[in-house]
Design a protein around this nucleic acid. Sequence first.
RNA 1: GUCCACGUAGCUCAGCUGGAUAGAGCAUACGCCUUCUAAGCGUACGGUCGGGGGUUCGAGUCCCUCCGUGGACGCCA
Length: 547
Amino acid sequence: MNNIEVALKNNIEKAVMECFNITPEPGLVMIEIPKDNSNGDYSTNIAMRLAKVVRSNPQVIAKALVEKLESNLENADKIEIAGPGFINFWIKKSELAGVINTVIDAGDDYGKNNSGNGLKILVEYVSANPTGALHLGHARGAAWGDSICRLLKKSGYDCLREYYINDAGHQIDMLGESVYARYLQSFGMEAALPEDGYHGADVIEITEEIKKDVGDKYLNCPKEEAVKFFREEGKKRELNRIKNDLKYYRCEFDSWISEQKIVDENRVNLVMDKMVEMGLTYEKDGAIWFKSTEYGDDKDRVLKKSDGYYTYLTPDIANHVYKFERGYEKLVNLWGADHHGYIARMKAAIEAMGYGKDALEVDIIQMVRLVENGEEVKMSKRTGNAITIRELVDDIGVDSARYFFVSRAVDTHMDFDLSLARSQSNENPVYYAQYAYARICSILRTKPAQRLDHYDLLTSEKEVDLLKHINEFVNVVSEAALTRSPNKICNYIQKLAQYFHSFYGAHKIIDDSQPELTAQRLALLEATRITLKNALDLIGVSAPEKM
RNA sequence: GUCCACGUAGCUCAGCUGGAUAGAGCAUACGCCUUCUAAGCGUACGGUCGGGGGUUCGAGUCCCUCCGUGGACGCCA
C-alpha cells in the first residue's frame, strides 16, 4: 500500500472503532480503486461488510462512518456514500502529486517493497533435459520463471533461481548412443540411431564439434568406451547450448543443480534409507514402493525398480529434500502441463518426509501450440522439427518473445501464431509500451526535468490519471509477486503507456508561455519514465530511448 | 473411464483472490500530423461471461451438475 492508502485505511479503522466499538481484524477494511472514476479515487465496502456484524443497514453504517471520517481525514477533499453503501473518497490533488518526488528519489528502486519479508524461496524452472535445444514450451517457462524471480527479489523475498539438470539415467544414455551413431555416420559408416534416440539437428551439430576436437580417435575404439565418451561430451555440450540460449534470452540462473551430483553425493540412497526407516515404503514384486496414497496421491509409486535402479521420482525427492536442507522455506516449481500428474506424488513425498504440506507449490505451464499460416506445427524434440528458443528470438526478438509469453496467464493454453508475430511485430503490445518510453525520453532530451517542491498545477484529468497509476505501482509489484503473476505487470505497463499516450495527445508538454506548468509536467514525465522502465525491467524487456 | 486445468466481443486476451453500468488490443467504420516521435490520439460498432441450478446485501469470480477443449493417468524420464 502506498502512503495515501495507509492513511486512508488507518482512518477508516479508527472510525470503525469509534462508531461501533469493535476492533477491526486485519483485512476487514478493504480499499479499492473504483473502475469508474466518477466513484472517486478510492472506495471502501466496509459498510456492507459490517452490516451483518452490526446488524444494521449499510447505508446507516456508512453515514455514521462518514461523519467521523469527515472530521479527521486530511488527505481527502470529498467523501460520498454511493450505491448500496460504498464510501467513496476524492483525494486531494496535491497528495497524489507527491508521488512524483517519491519516484524521482527512489529511481531504479521505485517499486521495491518488503512484502516478502525475507522469506527464503527457491524457484525451479525450465529444468529441461540436456538432450536437445530448448523449445517454445521452455521459452514460456523461462520468461515466466525469470520474471517471477525478478518480482520476488523486488518484493523483499530471498529468492534463488534454480535449474535442475536431469543428467543421469536412461535419456542421457540415449544421447550418448545418438551422438555416437551420428559420429559414425559422419565417416560414411552405417549406423542407426536407437529407437528412442535424439534426431534433432543439435545432435548432428554437436557431433561435428566433437569431431573437430577428436578426429577419428573413436572410430576404432570399443563401442562401450566410445558411447561413454560421447555421453559425457554430449551432455556437457548440450548443457552449454542451453545455458547460452537462456543467456541470449536474458534468463540467468543462480544455481544449476545436477541430478548426477545428487546421486554422487549419496543423497538419493540416504533419502531412500530414510523413507524405509520412517515406514513410508513397502516391498512388492521385487520393487520398493512409496505409500503415497496415504498422503493424497491416487496410487502408490515405485521408488526402486525390481532391476535395482531408481525411478525418476527418487532422485527428485532427494533434490527437493536438499532444497529444504539448504534452508529454503518455500519451494516453487514451474512444470510443463505434461507433468501435471506428478505433482501429487511429489507433494506426498514432501509431506511424508515431515515438511509442510504447502511448502511446495507447483505452477503448471500450459502447452504452447505453434501455428503458422493457419496450420498447427507439431513440435517435438524427437523429430527435429521443433522451433527452438534461439530461432524464435532471432525471428521476432527477445523483447517481443518475452513480452508475449509473460503477458498471458500460464495456466491457459496458448496459440503462438508465428506468422502473425512476424508480420505484425509492429503491432505487438510491447512496441506500444516501448514507444511511450522513447517518446518520453525524446521530450526529456529537449528539456530535462527538475525535481520541484510543489506540483500544484497538475490537476487535469489526464495528469491525475497518470499520477494515480504511478501511485499504484508498488501495490501491483507486491501483488504480482505474491500471486506469482507477472502478467499483471504487463497489464500495468499497457495501462501506464496508455495514460501517457493519452496525456501526450491532450496536452503540449513543453509550453514556453507557461514555464511553471511545463516544469511540473516534465517532472511528471520523469516519474512516468522511471516507473515504466522499472516495470519493463521486471519482465526482462528493454526500454529503448529512441525508436 | 478416473483425476486436473481451461471456456469472457468476429479473433487474441484482461478482469486486482466476491463489489457499483464486464474491459483492452486486433479487425471494421469515421475523424486527427505547418505544433515535443502518427509504432500515436479520439469517436463508433461489437457480450445470454459455455448451458442450467445453488450460496448472499451482491457472482465472470465461490459450490454442484451438464456440455466442449486440452493434459495426466508406466517398475518412462
